[in-house]
Nucleic acid binder design. Structure first.
Lengths: 352, 352
DNA sequence: ATTAATAGCGAAAACGTTTGCGTGTTGACA
DNA sequence: TGTCAACACGCAAACGTTTTCGCTATTAAT
C-alpha cells in the first residue's frame, strides 16, 4: 500500500531473530521465560518484542498443536431470539475459557448444514455445537453427524436433537414445560384448552404436544382433536402469516367454547391473541394464553404474554462447557451426557 | 477412544503417500490434476483419497497461503434483531464467496472489544467487519482500530462508525430516514411532534435527532426542547424499563398537546405507545407513532408500528462485499468507500 | 592441569500443505 | 550407438511456531 503512514506489519520470530542476531529458538525461549536463556538476552528480546507488538501467529500454533481453540456453531437461523441467546451463552463461556466461536447458518436446509460442517471440519475447529435443521429432521439423514463424530471431532447438540446420534446433548424439558403450562391454564379454570403446535417431525413440537396431552389426562379431560392445531411450518415462513391467521380463526370459529390456548412458540401465541381480540374476546377474562419461548415479543405484547421460558443463554453456556470439557479431557473414556434445562413459567397478563 | 466402531481419523497427504508408496508431492499433484502425474497414479491416488474422504487441512493451507478465508465480526450484542440481521447478510455473501465468519461480542464494552480484536488479529482472520461499542464511542479511544489497519488488516465498519478512522464504511442514511419519518407525521397533520432519542454520543442517535430538527424546519416549526427526550441508555439495560416508562409518561403529562411521536428505536416506540394507551389516548386518532428499526416488535405490536426500516441484512451483505473485494484486490491502491443504505418507511397502523 | 558440570545458545524436526526444480527412465531419431 | 525430449516422479523449501537434543565455552572441582 502506498500509504505515507508507518506500516508495522505483523512481526514474526524469524524477523526478531534476524534483527537481534540470535536464533529463532532463542527468541521463542526468551519470550516464554525459559531458564535456558540468559537474563540479558531475555530482556533484550522481550523489549524488542514489546516494541514491535509481537504476537504469536495463531494459525502456526494451531497447526503445531493440532488444536485450534475454536468452536464451530451450526444453527438453523440467527435472526431468532432463542438462537441468538444460545450463541451469547456459548460465546460467554468460550471466551472465558480461551476459545473463539465460528458461526455457520444452515438456514434450515440439509445441504447447507452438510456444506457448513464440511467447511469447518477440515481442521478449522476443534468441535461442534449445533441444532439440527428442520429439513435434516424431515429427511432423517444424519450421516454427516456420524462421520464427524467418527473422525474424532466431538459434537454437542442442543434443543433440536436426535436420539440416534450418540453425543453430548443439552435440551430443555419440553414435556414438563408444556405440561406445566397447560396445567396452569386448567387450574386457572379453563375448560377447553386448545394447542397450536407444529408438525410432529419437529421433535420439540411433538414433545410439547405430548405435555399438553398429559396435562389433560391429569385433569381427567378427554382430548378433543378439534382443539389441536398442527401448523405447517412452510406457511409461516417470512410473511405468509395471513394463512396462519386464517387457520387460527378457523379454530376459534369452529370451537366457540375455547377459553385457553397454549402455543408452542411465541409468534403463534401473539397471532392467536390478535385473532381472538379481533373476534371480540377479552384477554384474559374470556380466554387465556400461554406461549413457549423467552423472546422479546412476549414481554412487550399487549397484553404481555405468559410464557414458558427456555433459558436459551443457559443452554448455550452448558453446551459450551460440555464441549470444552470434552476437548480438554485427558482420559478418552467417553460416555455422553444429556443435560436437561428446567423451564420456568413466567406469568404475565395473558393469564389470570 | 475405546469405541468398537471403526474410527476413520482425518487422513493426511503423508499417510496417503506412505500407503500408496509414492511421495507427498505426487499425491498433492495427483489430487490437483497436475499434468506432471501419469493417468495411472492419478486415478489410484484419487480413488484412495475419495475412499478415505480426504480433505486438505485448512489450517495448513492458511499458514501456507497466509490467508485464512475467514472474516472476523465484532458486534456489541447479538441478541438484537438488527445485528443478527446484519450477521445473516454477512454470512450469506461470505459463504457464497468461500469465507467463514467468526463472531466476537464486545457487549458494548471497550475492553472486550480490544481483547476480541487482539484474539482474532493474530492470524486467525483476514479482515474485520465491526460496529463500535458504546463505551468505545464514549471514551473516543480508537487506537485498536488504527493499529489493526496499520498492520495491514482491513476493517469495514457498519452502522456505528467514526469519521476519524479511515476505512470502508456502510451506514444507513439516518438523517434522511428520520427526516422522512418526521415529515410524514407532520404531513399527516401532527402539530406537536415529540422525539424520544438517545444521548448524543451514540452517533446514530445524534443524526436521527438532527433529522427530526431538519424536518421541523422544513415545516417552519420552531423546535420545543420540552418535546425532545434524550434517554440515558444505562436505564434501559435489561429490565429497568419502568424508569423509561416514567420518563415517557412525564413527557406526555408535561405536554398534553403531543400528537405525534418519533422514537429512534423500536423499543422506545413500543413503550411509548403503551404509555399513551394507558393515558387513554387513541392510536393513531389522537396520537401517531413512528419507530426506527426493522425489528419483530413493530410488526406484531398492537397497533402495528410504522417504522423506518434499516435493511440490516443488506448492510451486512454490502459490508462483506466491501471487505472481500478489498481482500481479493490485486492492486494495492486504497481509497475507502462509504456505502449509504437507503431507509424505507414501512407504513403500518400507528399512523394515519 | 585434567575432567566434569553447567550455562547459553543453535540446529532441526514437526504440524500439513503447495510448488519450482532436479533427475532418472523411457523412447525416438539421427 | 549416442543425443535429446518427454514423461513421471521426488526433493526441498516455505508458511510460523515449539521443543528436543546437541554443541561449545566457561566455570568449578579434583
Amino acid at each position: 500500500m502506498l500509504n505515507t503512514h508507518i506500516m508495522k506489519k505483523k512481526i514474526t520470530l524469524k524477523q526478531i531473530a534476524r534483527e537481534l542476531d540470535v536464533s529463532i529458538s532463542t527468541v521463542s525461549k526468551a519470550l516464554r521465560d525459559s531458564i535456558e536463556i540468559s537474563e540479558d538476552t531475555r530482556q533484550k528480546v522481550q523489549a524488542f518484542a514489546k516494541l514491535y507488538n509481537y504476537r504469536p501467529n495463531n494459525i502456526a500454533l494451531s497447526l503445531k498443536n493440532r488444536k485450534t481453540k475454536t468452536i464451530g456453531v451450526i444453527i438453523p437461523e440467527i435472526v431468532h431470539h432463542f438462537f441468538s441467546k444460545v450463541i451469547r451463552g456459548i460465546e460467554l463461556v468460550a471466551n472465558k475459557r480461551g476459545y473463539n466461536v465460528i458461526i455457520g447458518l444452515s438456514n434450515e436446509s440439509f445441504d447447507k448444514e452438510v456444506i457448513n460442517m464440511q467447511m469447518l471440519a477440515n481442521g478449522s475447529i476443534d468441535g461442534f455445537i449445533l441444532s439440527i435443521a428442520k429439513e435434516t429432521l424431515q429427511q432423517q439423514d444424519y450421516h454427516h453427524f456420524k462421520e464427524t463424530i467418527n473422525q474424532g471431532m466431538p459434537i454437542v447438540m442442543f434443543d433440536r436433537i436426535v436420539n440416534e446420534i450418540h453425543c453430548d446433548k443439552v435440551i430443555i424439558d419440553d414435556l414438563k414445560g408444556s405440561k406445566n403450562a397447560v396445567s396452569k391454564l386448567l387450574s386457572n379454570g379453563c375448560q377447553n384448552v386448545a394447542i397450536i403446535t407444529t408438525k410432529d417431525y419437529v421433535s420439540v413440537g411433538k414433545l410439547r404436544t405430548q405435555g399438553y396431552l398429559e396435562a389433560l389426562e391429569d385433569f381427567k379431560i378427554t382430548p378433543d382433536t378439534n382443539l389441536i392445531l398442527k401448523v405447517d411450518d412452510e406457511l409461516v415462513s417470512e410473511d405468509h402469516l395471513e394463512s396462519l391467521e386464517n387457520e387460527i380463526e378457523g379454530l376459534f370459529q369452529g370451537n366457540k367454547n375455547i377459553d385457553g390456548v397454549f402455543a408452542v412458540n411465541e409468534l403463534y401465541a401473539i397471532i392467536a391473541m390478535k385473532v381472538a381480540r379481533n373476534l371480540g374476546m377479552k384477554i384474559p377474562e374470556d380466554i387465556q394464553f400461554i406461549g413457549f419461548t423467552d423472546g422479546v415479543l412476549s414481554k412487550h405484547a399487549t397484553p404481555s404474554l405468559t410464557t414458558v421460558s427456555q433459558h436459551g443463554q443457559l443452554m448455550g453456556e452448558k453446551a459450551a462447557e460440555l464441549l470444552i470439557d470434552n476437548l480438554e479431557r485427558e482420559d478418552e473414556e467417553e460416555h455422553y451426557k444429556t443435560i436437561v434445562i428446567a423451564t420456568e413459567l413466567v406469568e404475565r397478563n395473558s393469564t389470570k
